[in-house]
Nucleic acid binder design. Structure first.
Ligand code: MN
Ligand code: MN
Ligand code: ZN
Ligand code: ZN
Lengths: 141, 141
DNA sequence: ACAACCATTGAGAATGAGTCTCAATGTCAG
DNA sequence: CTGACATTGAGACTCATTCTCAATGGTTGT
């Protein structure tokens, strides 16, 4: 089942309408670079003569996040950054404060930490954010 | 060496002036609740008849973070939240999305994760942010 | 103590990401 | 095909944070 199908099912399940704007946004999102902000997405839409308002783009990103096709981040002081989510691609981010490079990594111990937290406090974790900031190998020293 | 002394030394070292506004903000910050936002801090200052402009409060918080006396967070979609930092009090946060409760916790494995990242990619970590969102024991189920 | 230099302050304007409004338009179940 | 109602878009709006710049004040050398 591909992204469009998943999105359409999600829309149907929630009694939301299957509009061309929503589908177009999804198509263009999938063709974006790994981490992108809403401005770049809007620029891309414009450059492809798709006229979709800023409001609709924001509204649609909300839906894409909610249905699990896209994840939303906040890196540093900047605004939101999105990235399409693929199955079993769970990772955290290192951001170089000098050159802006982003390194994605996965360390299974993060789940151990979360597991222990749940047991210790009886909480239920729905989401998390974990970012590291520093100098990449090219920028340090 | 107490907070004020540290701050004064920091100011001197950076050729910044030791103003009453800066010292006052530090005093009031230290008397705030654990996690506070700038609005509450400004309210507190007002209620104590200390007239310090919003701009100066923001500017001073910047300095306090830079000199290591205060840490700055972003919880969810909200604005900045600050908290005074005490030596060897390194912790992460769990935030209940239902009731707003904040649980602070420390799991030493977070350092293992960071250590392994440094070794694997040759990066230098200067800072990080790690927050979990979910339901606390009173709100889940 | 004083002068002179220049950093700091404050009031309010500016910024900017994101949200909201509401009339016009589009979707889709029946 | 139609009616009911969800969605869209242009631009107004919000609100946290930053900026501006004239007035004020801290610091250093004398
Ligand atoms: Mn990523
Ligand atoms: Mn804390
Ligand atoms: Zn770098
Ligand atoms: Zn709760």
């Amino acid at each position: 089942m591909n992204y469009s199908q998943i999105f359409c099912e999600y829309l149907k399940k929630h009694d939301l309408k299957n509009t061309t704007e929503r589908l177009t946004v999804l198509q263009v999102v999938l063709a974006m670079d790994k981490h992108f902000d809403v401005e770049s997405l809007i620029d891309r839409l414009k450059s492809q003569q798709k006229k979709i308002s800023r409001a609709t783009v924001y509204r649609t990103m909300e839906l894409l996040v909610d249905c699990g096709l896209v994840t939303k981040h906040r890196f540093g002081e900047n605004g939101r950054v999105y990235e399409p989510k693929s199955e079993r691609d769970n990772h955290d981010h290192f951001l170089c404060v000098s050159c802006g490079k982003i390194i994605e990594f996965y360390d299974p111990e993060i789940e151990g930490i979360h597991q222990r937290l749940c047991e210790r406090f009886g909480v239920e974790i729905l989401d998390y954010s974990h970012q590291l900031y520093g100098k990449c190998n090219k920028c340090s020293g």
